[in-house]
Design a protein around this nucleic acid. Sequence first.
DNA 1: CGTTTTCGTTAACATTTATCAATAAATAAC
DNA 2: GTTATTTATTGATAAATGTTAACGAAAACG
Lengths: 189, 189
Amino acid sequence: MFQQIKTYYKTLVPAITDESWNAMEERLTVQHLKKGDFFIRKGDICRHVCFVNTGLMRLFYLEDGKEICTAFITENKFISEYASFLTNAPAAQYMEALEDCELVNLSFTNMQNLYKQYPVFEIFGRKIAEYLYLLLSKHNTILRAHTPEQRYQFLLDEEPQLIQRVPQYMIASFIGITPEHLSRIRNKR
Amino acid sequence: MFQQIKTYYKTLVPAITDESWNAMEERLTVQHLKKGDFFIRKGDICRHVCFVNTGLMRLFYLEDGKEICTAFITENKFISEYASFLTNAPAAQYMEALEDCELVNLSFTNMQNLYKQYPVFEIFGRKIAEYLYLLLSKHNTILRAHTPEQRYQFLLDEEPQLIQRVPQYMIASFIGITPEHLSRIRNKR
DNA sequence: CGTTTTCGTTAACATTTATCAATAAATAAC
DNA sequence: GTTATTTATTGATAAATGTTAACGAAAACG
């Protein structure tokens, strides 16, 4: 159940001790989501960082009744409505399972406790923040690309597997265009 | 010289000890940039996180010979080409002084040393990552707003002081439109 | 299986935004 | 202060993208 996150933890924090790992393991919880289930909704406070064991999650805004996808997260990666998690403020986004998922969750409170009890755990917290920064940074770069075609190409290069698993109209919203326009871009090739 | 960053450090890490602060202070360097000077160029490896004591810095890409601004950083805030800093990869962006600046710099190497010698310092490293995440997250939200007008309004609401200090054509590139278009948006009001 | 719903494609048309060019205004340099 | 340079505005036109609607394909469901 916790093998994947343990492996990941070890790569993030090579200085891992059995003691610190056991302390974390005790505080992890497992959650199963069916396709279409929400982990949080806009307005909720996001109190966890989630490690995706299996499945596919997404984050999205709702603007004028339209969905705007901002992230798709697959196996062995972390996801959170992290701004809400960090600031304890209501989430601006929804977090939903696009496929049946198994999540391994660590709560804000438990994370704070781990920081206090095991300073080495701070490294883990920092690595997660850094990881989520780099992920967001990549998305930012995509968004800044001049044309929709460049943005789509970027996604094809960086995350080809996503194109297979995520409905096209969600990809379109991710790169900031309509599904119709993406369809035209694809067929122009 | 280091009073501002010390104050900031204290707010980030209330558990500060004199010892850890002194250790950090010894490793800080001060740098003065004239308006128009570059801190790093694309392709350089960014080896520092910079605290802006005075002045105004920006980050920007160069795409097809055109500048695309991604951040404007003012006094008492941190700036870095952070993706390069974290991964030790060549920077994708330029970092330039838009006004004469005084920077207080902390190098990657010194930061790693501090992590090792003073575990409490990990908190500082994590807080910086979290701060830069939240900054980027805000920029992301702006970029995701549907219309350029909404993006401009968002910036007006969130960073009104920037509009005064940053040339309008840079604001335009920040929100992803041409200077001409931004001029029209402003005059429609 | 057959049925229903969701998703992707295509076309005509409307709207938004970029481009190009000219000028005015503001700022910097001498 | 005067001149040179950069920045902002405005208009005409072109290009890109969105909207609406219809239809076919694929997937989900019973």
